[in-house]
Design a protein around this nucleic acid. Structure first.
Length: 279
DNA sequence: ACTTAGACTCGGCTTG
DNA sequence: TCACGCCGAGTCTAAG
């Protein structure tokens, strides 16, 4: 469910509450979200460790422990990370609870349990291929127009699946891809290597814009998303096309269309985002 | 022509 | 129905 702006909000919202605190116990309720090591090992290895930092890379959350190990959390579609006082009620879908030394707790909850937890050493990072092969982050100095252009020219797929591929740009998901394409007025089925220089510049700017606004608005609470303190974001009120099938385009009043592209619901304005000649 | 690596697509995971 | 995501298996394609 969460894309980069949502994960960023979760991390910045709770990091100051948990950094430099000791995990006194790990309570495992639904152990199938733990991919490595075994649930028993996971609990034992985290017990009495101090959380040194909480960071984000792409849609991954990286918790560094004082023994050098990394607890890598990916929320996938419905995962949540919630920080609460020890005496507060827990979410019905709680899977793993990290009890901290100061009578607080960090809860990993996940309705569909598609999310993943991996406790690894730093030299095992390459085993998590999705994390290891991430492309440049929007808003970073690495994410230049030249970088985007080079990636685009190497790809024969359509622009929408290109942007969803985390190896190209890290952190975009189904909502922000549709939004970035709407703002840059590019049809989602255009071939990645067919974009003009002008379109690449507009797309680059639009990606940075939607990610920046998404972060600033506290994320998009389309369905389930809540930040680390259980609060909704507000960016869903500002969407141009996502989940707006049959509603008027904010630029031209044409009705928004929905198609399925590579298995993903895809929204666009058929007037602003035309599919011309070189499909 | 055959092999191989990489790019790409799609089903599956799971619950409400 | 559909869903804010990814992996692995299978298919396709370009290079050598």
């Amino acid at each position: 469910m969460p894309e980069m702006p949502e994960v960023e909000n979760i991390v910045i919202g709770i990091k100051d509450f948990i950094e430099n605190k000791k995990i006194v116990d790990v309570e495992i309720i639904k152990g199938d979200v733990i991919k490595s090591p075994s649930s028993d090992e996971y609990r034992k290895l985290l017990q009495d460790k101090i959380i040194k930092s909480l960071k984000r890379r792409g849609k991954y959350i990286i918790m560094s422990l004082d023994d050098g190990r990394l607890n890598i959390i990916h929320l996938r579609m419905t995962g949540k990370l919630l920080y609460k006082q020890e005496n507060e009620d827990i979410d019905k879908y709680s899977c793993v609870i990290y009890h901290l030394e100061d009578k607080t707790k960090l809860i990993y909850a996940d309705i569909r349990r598609l999310g993943t937890l991996d406790l690894i050493t730093t030299d095992e990072i390459s085993r998590l291929k999705g994390l290891y092969t991430l492309g440049a982050e929007p808003l970073s100095s690495e994410f230049t127009i030249g970088y985007l252009k080079d990636c685009l020219n190497k790809s024969k797929t359509k622009i929408k699946p290109f942007l969803l591929n985390q190896k190209n740009v890290a952190g975009l998901g189904n909502i922000y891809v549709d939004e970035a394409l709407a703002i840059s007025k590019i049809h989602p089925e255009r071939k990645a290597n067919s974009l003009s220089d002008e379109e690449i510049e507009k797309l680059h700017q639009a990606i940075n814009l939607v990610i920046n606004e998404g972060i600033r608005d506290g994320g998009t609470s389309f369905r389930d998303y809540r930040n680390g303190l259980g609060e909704k974001g507000s960016h869903q009120d500002k969407l141009y096309v996502y989940n707006r099938k049959g509603k008027e385009c904010r630029f031209c009043d044409t009705l928004i269309t929905k198609i399925v592209l590579n298995g993903r619901g895809t929204y666009f304005c058929p007037n602003c985002q035309k599919l011309n000649d070189d499909k």
